[in-house]
């Protein structure tokens, strides 16, 4: 059914959903007459004995009842983990479904169901994000990850279509550049990169380093915990003006992550340069939760300047995504909407 066939008296049903499955957040984007509505849930959970249920009901915390346990999901899982002195559990690790988490699939299924809501019609199209295969860790199984997510989305009543995570940023942010550009999605589990010219994907890959890698590395170098480094980051870290050794350690790892991503672009581009034509300079768009640190764009530009001489692609501008946390979901939504134009 297309939107043209909807009776005029009824509010139009705008079809298509974009679903970003991240290590840190699950975000769904959908069109409504009022605008684009994004729904988000933190991709984390914590299991507690059933006797805590009454307390949780009172505190209005998101939870799932499973057998004799109560599973707290979302941001509350982090808060409760601190209260009970426990470590939060995550369905995704390093960008992919966590094999070590036995309950992960079921919890992930419930979280996706809640974020997506019911489909507007049976088999409504949902384009969901899949990371590219990591170039630095071929043992990571993207195929299984994609298969599982496809099944979850299908079981929620949608028609699932997988799409590359970084390419979605180009769809969301590079319309005026003829959907051409290089997108960097700096996530918490991994960093995804895609190059496209007029929507044609020339290159896409990921590296197994992201925000978590920064936290772990910086924590190790100053003798702190990863959670502490994450908290310093989230409280507000200016990459251009770090204060104290902990912030300086974080900056070192941020720099290394950007350099590593750029170096891998050079390396991967060499493989396709003979077959892929670059007719005009393209923009670089940086996005993802890790890119939300204050001064990230200037810092990226500074690192890029030092690598510019060897960078094989002519770059017109470097800019940040307008909504770093929603850019992927919005780009996927653009693709989902297109499916109804066919």
């Amino acid at each position: 059914m297309s939107e043209n066939e909807t009776p005029a008296a009824v509010a139009p049903v705008l079809m298509g959903v974009g679903l970003d499955m991240g290590t840190m957040n699950i975000v769904a984007a959908r069109r409504q007459p009022s605008g684009v509505v994004t729904k988000r849930i933190r991709d984390a959970f914590l299991d507690l004995p059933a006797e805590h249920r009454r307390m949780l009901k009172l505190s209005n915390v998101n939870y799932i009842k499973k057998d004799d346990d109560i599973i707290i999901v979302g941001d509350a899982a982090y808060e409760m983990a601190n209260v009970f002195g426990r470590e939060v559990r995550r369905p995704l690790a390093a960008g992919l479904i966590s094999a070590g988490e036995i309950d992960a699939l079921e919890i992930l299924g419930v979280m996706v169901r809640e974020v997506l809501g019911d489909p507007a019609t049976e088999n409504e199209i949902c384009v969901f994000s899949v990371p590219a295969a990591p170039v630095d860790d071929p043992t990571k199984d993207v195929v299984y990850h994609r298969g599982i997510l496809e099944r979850i989305v299908n079981e929620c009543g949608y028609k699932a279509i997988p799409s590359n995570e970084a390419l979605a940023i180009i769809y969301a942010e590079c319309g005026k550049d003829q959907f051409s550009g290089i997108a960097f999605s700096f996530g918490s589990g991994m960093t995804n990169v895609a190059l496209a010219i007029r929507t044609v994907e020339g290159l896409s890959f990921s590296v197994g380093r992201g925000g978590d890698w920064i936290d772990a590395g910086a924590a190790k170098s100053v003798g702190a915990t990863q959670a502490r480094m994450c908290s310093i980051k989230e409280k507000g870290l200016n990459l251009m003006k770090p204060i104290g050794r902990e912030q300086e350690a974080l900056v070192v790892y941020y720099k290394n992550l950007i350099e590593y991503a750029l170096d891998n672009v050079v390396k991967e581009f060499q493989k396709i340069s003979a077959k892929f034509d670059m007719p005009f300079p393209v923009p670089i768009v940086v996005s993802g939760g890790t890119s939300k640190a204050e001064g990230f764009l200037d810092f990226f530009k500074e690192v890029f300047e030092s690598k510019k001489r060897k960078f094989p692609i002519e770059v017109s501008v470097i800019r940040a995504a307008t909504e770093p946390l929603d850019a992927v979901a919005r780009g996927l939504l653009v693709q989902a909407v297109q499916e109804y134009d066919e």
């Binding site: 409504q32 009022s34 605008g35 684009v36 509505v37 994004t38 729904k39 988000r40 849930i41 009901k57 998101n62 939870y63 799932i64 009842k65 499973k66 999901v73 979302g74 699939l105 079921e106 992930l108 299924g109 419930v110 979280m111 996706v112 169901r113 809640e114 974020v115 599982i148 099944r151 979850i152 079981e155 929620c156």
Partner: peptide
């Protein structure tokens, strides 16, 4: 994987 009978009390953050 998605069990429709699983009881959940979840309110997701929504932004327009």
């Amino acid at each position: 994987i998605v069990d429709k009978n699983t009881k959940a009390e979840i309110s997701v953050q929504s932004e327009s």
